[in-house]
Simulated scan of single mutants.
Amino acid sequence: MQKSVLMLTKLDTRKILVNVQNIQLVEANPDTVIILGGGKKLLVKESLEEIYDMLQEG
């Protein structure tokens, strides 16, 4: 079963849930930026590799 949401941490330490179907792109620049379908950008504490691992755990 594939994950439908990820629990991530914003830079101000607030926890958020992100619907994986809304994610268009994840980049490390050096902060991790998640770009959603509507163009909204989220900066999170988790690394690109951590997010990848979360998605693989499914």
Rank of each mutant, 00 (worst) to 15 (best):
L6Y: 07
D31F: 08
E49T: 13
Q2Y: 12
S47C: 02
S4G: 03
N22M: 08
Q24F: 01
N19D: 14
N19R: 09
L11K: 13
D31P: 11
S4Q: 15
I16Y: 06
G37Q: 15
V20F: 02
L6D: 06
L6V: 06
G39Q: 10
K45H: 12
G58V: 09
V33T: 14
L6P: 07
Y52H: 11
V18F: 01
E50N: 09
I34F: 06
Q21L: 09
G58C: 08
N29Y: 10
L43S: 10
E27H: 05
V44C: 06
D31E: 14
M1A: 11
V18I: 14
G39E: 10
L8W: 04
S4W: 05
L25G: 00
Q21Y: 04
Q21F: 06
M54V: 01
T13Q: 15
I51N: 04
K10C: 07
L36A: 05
L17H: 10
G37Y: 09
V26H: 01
K15I: 03
I51Y: 04
V20M: 02
L8G: 03
E57A: 14
I35A: 02
K45W: 02
R14M: 08
I16C: 04
N29T: 13
M1G: 15
V18A: 01
D53L: 15
S47I: 01
E50H: 09
L8E: 03
V26G: 00
Q56P: 00
E57Q: 14
Y52W: 05
L11N: 08
E27I: 12
G58L: 11
L17S: 11
L25Y: 09
Q56C: 10
E46D: 01
V18M: 01
V20S: 02
V20E: 02
I16G: 03
L43W: 04
L55Q: 07
N22C: 01
L36E: 07
L43N: 08
T9D: 07
M54K: 14
D12G: 04
P30Q: 09
M54T: 00
M7L: 13
I51L: 07
K41F: 02
Y52R: 12
E49Q: 13
Q2K: 15
L6N: 07
V20A: 02
I34T: 06
I16M: 08
D53V: 10
K10P: 02
Q56S: 11
K40C: 00
L6H: 07
